[in-house]
Nucleic acid binder design. Structure first.
Length: 381
DNA sequence: CGGTTTTGACCGGCGC
DNA sequence: GCGCCGGTCAAAACCG
């Protein structure tokens, strides 16, 4: 999302939320589609590939997710299967480290070629981000099957409520320099195979349905098990071959949620935590965690800084009315959640120099927060 | 006291 | 069949 905002950066370096979050205009605005389309066109022009339109739907995610017929329908984002902003919001690195910088999903000038990375896992795409210690840090996100997924709830429009990781990641991979990560893992072969698939995608502009819903992220973290907004219960730990650092096994504690997470430290860099998510949360993060997140955000330390934030989560349905009682609450909560995420997004300098911190980063971030808050406030009012 | 973590044991898949 | 390995179980310990 932030990356999208960046792509639409105006000459002042600001990212008006009205364009950054065209879909946040919760009222059915016939012009919003037009605006969104305009932004989309500009982005598409910059990115060099066609971006399916974002759709705004008034659907009841709760009805789908929780089968509660009385809940007031709440506006949620319905992202077209062909495009989703979720990776940007979900990108832990984007939300985690104020000093980290994201390589935008578009060709950017750079003095030196980014550290080569390749998608890993059986269905991963790769995003390259940088950070002070790791100039180009990969985020690897597994791609869930597109469409036809039994367990991914869909809205009235049929678009998945669970954020889609497929095509947008592929799109990101398209315009970046996906290459090889020095992982040496036994998944490398599969990685290469999938890269070939991505190449096909690039050739034909067709999204290939990935076979796995696993998602893998490699993030920097001082913690062995960084908080990601969800509650996990550790059920095992094992030292696996090829890595002296033990691998920890976590299960989501949410009743009925089968999502699992494997966390292990990178062999080469213990500051890198590799988190592999198995499954997709079809529930929202614990409300207290969200509130805690907001509170912590203001104090500069939050779960949004968690490197693994959001992977495998369900941000577009965060605004279920189960969280807050007011009919307006769902919208507010969603907005707050997005704003929380936005507020933690570091600035996205187009000109990135090997992870060096843009001196204007903080200022730019502040401005973004300020603008976003103001615009959001205006929307709310 | 309820939830979480720890940790050794157990199980199934896979290669030899 | 055997051993290795990754993943899971479950009881005890720990913690707030």
């Amino acid at each position: 999302m932030k990356a999208l905002a960046m792509l639409d950066q105006n000459e002042n370096g600001l990212y008006p939320i009205s364009e950054t979050f065209p879909q946040t205009n919760v009222s059915p605005d016939p012009q919003s589609e037009q605006r969104s389309g305009g932004l989309r066109d500009r982005m598409a022009a910059k990115l060099g590939f066609d971006i399916p339109p974002l759709e705004i739907g008034r659907v009841s995610p709760s009805a789908n997710l929780f089968s509660n017929p009385i809940l007031v329908p709440s506006p949620i984002l319905v992202i077209s299967p062909g495009f989703s902003l979720s990776p940007f919001l979900q990108s832990p690195n984007m939300l985690s480290n104020s000093s980290s910088q994201i390589v935008p999903p578009c060709p950017i000038p750079n003095d030196a070629p980014p550290k080569t990375v390749e998608s890993s896992g059986d269905a991963h795409a790769t995003m390259i981000i940088s950070n002070n210690n790791l100039p180009h840090q990969p985020i690897e996100v597994d791609l869930p099957p597109q469409g036809g997924s039994d367990d991914i709830p869909t809205g009235n429009s049929g678009a998945p409520l669970v954020p889609s990781f497929d095509s947008e990641i592929v799109a990101v991979a398209d315009v970046m320099n996906p290459i090889s990560l020095e992982s040496g893992s036994k998944d490398d072969n599969k990685d290469r195979e999938y890269n070939q698939e991505e190449d096909k995608v690039e050739d034909h502009n067709v999204v290939v349905e990935p076979p796995s819903r696993k998602r893998k992220s490699q993030v920097e973290s001082e913690e062995d098990h960084p908080d990601d907004g969800f509650r996990w219960r550790k059920y095992g730990q094992k030292v696996v071959t090829g890595n002296a650092n033990p691998r920890s096994y976590y299960r989501c504690t949410y009743t009925g949620c089968e999502v699992k997470k494997l966390v292990e430290k990178n062999v080469d860099n213990v500051k890198l935590v590799v988190a592999t998510y198995d499954g997709i949360h079809e529930h929202v993060p614990p409300p207290e965690r969200i509130r805690k997140s907001s509170a912590k955000n203001q104090s500069g330390s939050s779960i949004s800084q968690d490197p693994t934030l959001g992977l495998g989560m369900l941000p577009s349905s965060v605004s279920t009315s189960q969280l807050l009682p007011s009919p307006l609450a769902p919208q507010m909560d969603m907005m707050q959640y997005y704003m929380d995420g936005l507020s933690k997004l570091p600035s996205l300098p187009v000109n990135q120099n090997h992870g060096s911190v843009n001196r204007d980063d903080e200022t730019m971030t502040d401005r973004v927060i300020s603008d976003g808050t103001e615009v959001y406030k205006a929307i709310r009012d």
